[in-house]
């Protein structure tokens, strides 16, 4: 069984929620993610995925954001 804090944002299925547990990104990206609302402890929901391995559409609070799978893999959730 995978430990609870080892779920990545990229592995959610549309409709599922999670709580942000850790963000593995270099400084600049980390800050950008922060300003867009990705903060530890925040609830995040995956709304949909684009076809052909395209971006993910997520929601944090009242902000909707799209990001690529590769960036979503850097965000760890406590599901």
């Amino acid at each position: 069984m995978t430990p609870l804090n080892d779920v990545k944002l990229s592995s959610l299925i549309p409709g599922q929620h999670g709580t942000i547990h850790a963000i593995h990104a270099e400084h600049a990206l980390h800050q950008r993610l922060n300003a867009m609302g990705f903060r530890i402890g925040k609830k995040i929901q995956l709304i949909r995925r684009a076809n052909f391995n395209g971006p993910l559409h997520v929601r944090i609070g009242a902000t909707d954001i799209i990001l690529r799978d590769i960036e979503a893999q850097r965000i760890q959730l406590a599901a």
Binding site: I65, L67, R68
Partner: peptide, 9 residues
């Protein structure tokens, strides 16, 4: 370049 974009209403 990371691709992260807001989706406004």
């Amino acid at each position: 370049e990371p691709f992260i974009l807001e989706l406004p209403p």
